[in-house]
Design a protein around this nucleic acid. Structure first.
Length: 205
DNA sequence: ACCCAGGGTCATA
DNA sequence: TATGACCATGGG
């Protein structure tokens, strides 16, 4: 995949805070829609923890509306930002231990395993492998993991086989997503698929 | 008109 | 503990 697609240089975002916001907004949502929401926040000069926590909910909802689930996400964004400020902002998070921080993030309403791990890996550069729906589908269809496997099992498949290297985990997960985005409905040339002749993304390929 | 998208939470049996 | 409902916009 690296040869086929090249380095991905994820996460798209200018700061750890922006990455954190993007990780929440992209839940079950096309990234294009998230870009619109982040553009709105930037244009309104609202992309900071202080302005988001201090914002009236209806206004915040309107700004992030294109990212979908906007009522849930507006409330969850404020929760995450309050936590962010309580931890001392980006420097505070960077100083925190990975395991403790993961538990704290998971305790927040609206932060599940993938969002927590995305923040840890892509915003804070921790060697945590992110599992998403693409990873689950692809590796299950390749027969490398079981369809029954939960998040911890999937994560263990990677972390038990790879060195705990944040740059490696970053690139690997980003390539999986890139591959999935290129799947056969978009580019029906399966002979060019770097994962093999039988497309591991689309069932009907 | 239908399907899906870089999930997560909550109510029910 | 295991499903199912719900959240909501935008592009293919």
């Amino acid at each position: 995949m690296l040869e086929a697609y090249g380095p991905q240089r994820w996460w798209p975002g200018d700061s750890p805070f922006e990455i954190m916001v993007g990780a929440l907004l992209t839940q079950n949502t096309n990234w294009r829609n998230v870009e619109k929401a982040i553009t709105n926040l930037k244009a309104a000069d609202m992309l900071s923890a202080d302005s988001i926590t201090g914002c009236e909910l209806p206004r915040l909802e309107a700004l992030i509306r294109p990212s979908g689930y906007f009522r849930q996400k507006a409330a969850r964004l404020q929760i995450l930002c309050r936590f962010f400020l309580g931890q001392g902002g980006t420097p505070g998070l960077q100083a925190a231990g990975t395991d403790v921080l993961r538990h704290q993030l998971l305790a927040l309403n609206g932060i599940g395993p993938e969002t927590a791990d995305s923040i840890l890996l892509y915003a804070l550069d921790r060697p945590v492998f992110v599992i998403d729906a693409y990873t689950r589908r692809i590796f299950s269809r390749l027969g490398l993991t079981g369809p029954e496997d939960g998040y911890p099992e999937l994560q263990g498949y990677f972390t038990s086989r790879l060195p705990a290297d944040a740059a490696l985990f970053n690139e690997y997960h980003a390539l999986i997503v890139q591959h999935a985005k290129q799947h056969c409905r978009v580019r029906p040339d399966c002979t060019a698929c770097p994962l093999g002749q039988i497309c591991p993304v689309s069932q009907s390929c």
